[in-house]
Design a protein around this nucleic acid. Sequence first.
DNA 1: CGCGACGTTGATTTGCCTCAACGATTGTGG
DNA 2: CCACAATCGTTGAGGCAAATCAACGTCGCG
Lengths: 203, 203
Amino acid sequence: MENSSQTTTAQPLVDFFFKLIPLNPAEKELVQSKFHPHLFLKKQFALQHGDVCEYFNFVVRGCLRLYKVDDKGVYHILQFATENHWISDLSSFHKRTKSAFDIDALEDTVVLRITYDDLIDLYVKAPKFDRIFRVLLENHFMQQQDRIGQLFSSTAEERYQSFLENYPHLINRLSQVQIASYLGVTPEFLSRIRGRIAKNDSR
Amino acid sequence: MENSSQTTTAQPLVDFFFKLIPLNPAEKELVQSKFHPHLFLKKQFALQHGDVCEYFNFVVRGCLRLYKVDDKGVYHILQFATENHWISDLSSFHKRTKSAFDIDALEDTVVLRITYDDLIDLYVKAPKFDRIFRVLLENHFMQQQDRIGQLFSSTAEERYQSFLENYPHLINRLSQVQIASYLGVTPEFLSRIRGRIAKNDSR
DNA sequence: CGCGACGTTGATTTGCCTCAACGATTGTGG
DNA sequence: CCACAATCGTTGAGGCAAATCAACGTCGCG
């Protein structure tokens, strides 16, 4: 690792921040002390609805999903997070309110996570992280804006096509049930879409 | 205004920031110098798709809307911005790319706006604004997350009901065409929903 | 006054869901 | 390591929420 003489458990995160804005040794040390590794086995919960979201999670390895269960018991996946992505219910995390969402592991997953109090303390001790997280939030915001635009103006088939384009690394990693839930359709209907596409592509 | 001995054109914005985090005189001065007032008459564009979004806008008075026009020419409103709210295509603004959205005025509207270069300069000169905009983005992000959750798990009628609860000040200010577009339904169908609700409420 | 946007209502269509059945794959406890 | 269960992906038949198309009265505004 070019930016550090020794590798530590929080190294992937230090590298991630470093790519956005270079950190000085004191700031690297802060990251080391504030973020703690945690392993989630497949199917384990990182957050259950009704609880307050205690951690802001950075995925080092594996895959988490954030979803909502509606009145009828149907799952709706809002976000996947794989290597070098962030996941948390920001609303619950920041307002300290009960979460409406669940987060669980689709694979055995290692995260680096920080508590609310430690994150606030991090902002106080090193305002550079205000900027880093501002940039992070900008990026997440843009993605969500595009997603809302798509949900409004595209058919399920178009949304699937653009999922294929935007997340090619996920299509062989997730089951169709997961993808269908992310797209906002039933697994049965996604299957029909795929059938339709396969037929058209072959002719 | 308790936090300033004299009122200036950017005063509403200084007040807005002040409520989040107190500003010192130098920072107030920076806001005055970087944000400039602009008037949009009803129906005027603040951004047209295909252009780069040049400004980050704070609405002082009036109402703007951000929307997407799909392939079939249908409008989809992603956001309204009234007094003390922010509006811009952040994606285009930050990446300096062509925007897929339009922003125009539903009423005569006064904004305070800042260019990309000036905003970057503001962050450099006063890192406190990194924190202010981080908090702003957190709030926008949470709202959007809830909206996506709703689009997935609620019917049009439920979304209309929750629009009534969350934005009571907007219902007499916007036409049903605008509200329908925001909810993601046709004006005809919103009319039927309202008919249904009126009938149920009276019994 | 006249024209265009609005809001409503009816008839028909359609995109997607529901329920149900089936073979193929995965995984898991004995 | 195998047997059985559970989940997955597919396909068919039927149903429903919302869109589409069309017609019509109202209102605000130039």
